[in-house]
Design a protein around this nucleic acid. Structure first.
Lengths: 200, 200
DNA sequence: AAATGCATGTAACGCGTTACATGATTTT
DNA sequence: AAAATCATGTAACGCGTTACATGCATTT
């Protein structure tokens, strides 16, 4: 059967309901606004826009520019809106998780507690930065509060905020546990040394 | 260059440090213990075990069974342990998120609030069930608390618990917001009707 | 009688990233 | 002088799931 399952065309349709855009713009917008729960590379965007155009889901107009390459501006059609709405009626499938940090943590006894500790700290640094970005995005949404989509954007953002805050709480707890584990390892190895001395 | 990036061989090595197992056992164990942060299908497991064996990272012994197909039991070698440890020294890369629920929520204004509401409710039901499973896994880990890996298993489990609890808090807040949005839509459309009447 | 579990494995397919190609402008 | 930004696109490659094939035993 080989039925198409991916949502990579529908993201483009969804973003094009906000305003007509070029492939490049779509890439930028994905990076700026939905990157914390969805990603799409140019290697997907350009071919998919082509497919959408040949299916009549979007139309394309070429804008000439001086000194820069032409911009191909895509607009969603009624047929495209219908496709987007049909897609929205399909139950979203839970994502298959692939969290490398968790995997390395799970096998942590094969490395040093310090190694794992540093990985968790790196996650903390990264996610703290994302949380700051979220604060900025929240302002952006507030500035556009008259868009009918604004409440939905806010809900998706809240998801990210609540999740990352939870991660940070977990990280605190976990960093403490890792330090404790490290000390215990010291204790065990030095008590082994003591025994050796006492036995002599 | 085309360098190998995936961790699907290393998961197998990691699990084989716990005890020698067949490909089928590995699949079962993944489903039972690390499925909430990692997944691996048999279409990956069997070919990867073959590759690991031909590279000398694991050895294979065939156990004959009556009435059932033979079991191929794989054991990790010293070379395999070294590979696992080298892999653990590589910084884990953050996963590229692809959350369909968030995507459909983000484009929610193109559907009815009830549709999105039902998706969030389905997520709540699913994740509540997972949390119950986590409680069971926690007992399992406690039963095996003498394994040197037990503390690490516990930390990875905690991550899942804290994250899902955060999701449920978000869901409560979001379900309320969606109901409010739905009522407002009613209000707007009925006030439009009033105006129409008044204008006649 | 049909479905599920045990157990192994392969082939086809879709998906998505990365690298590459091109080329002018602007910033460092 | 080098790197980044704008802007489009293609090709190759690796990855991972799904479906399929096989076949006996047990459960429904």
């Amino acid at each position: 059967m080989a039925r198409r399952i991916s949502s990579s065309m529908e993201v483009l349709l969804g973003l094009l309901t906000i305003e007509p855009m070029s492939g490049y713009d779509l890439g930028q917008m994905i990076k700026e606004s939905i990157h914390h729960f969805w990603n799409e590379s140019y290697g997907q965007i350009y071919p998919n826009l082509k497919r959408l155009a040949s299916g009549g889901f979007v139309t394309r107009k070429t804008e000439k520019q001086k000194g820069k390459p032409d911009r191909n501006i895509y607009s969603i059609t009624n047929k495209g809106r219908e496709r987007l709405q049909r897609w929205l009626q399909i139950e979203p499938q839970p994502e298959v998780p692939r969290n490398e940090l968790m995997l390395k943590l799970f096998f942590g006894s094969n490395a040093s507690p310090q190694t794992i500790h540093s990985y968790v700290e790196q996650m903390v640094a990264r996610e703290r930065a994302v949380l700051e970005r979220f604060a900025f995005i929240e302002c952006e949404i507030a500035r556009n509060r008259d868009y009918p989509s604004a409440p939905y954007w806010q809900m998706a953002l809240r998801f990210g905020q609540i999740e990352l805050e939870a991660h940070l709480r977990w990280a605190e707890e976990t960093l403490a546990a890792l330090r404790k584990l490290d000390k215990e390892r010291d204790r065990v190895s030095s008590s082994r040394k003591d025994k050796g001395h006492a036995g002599k």
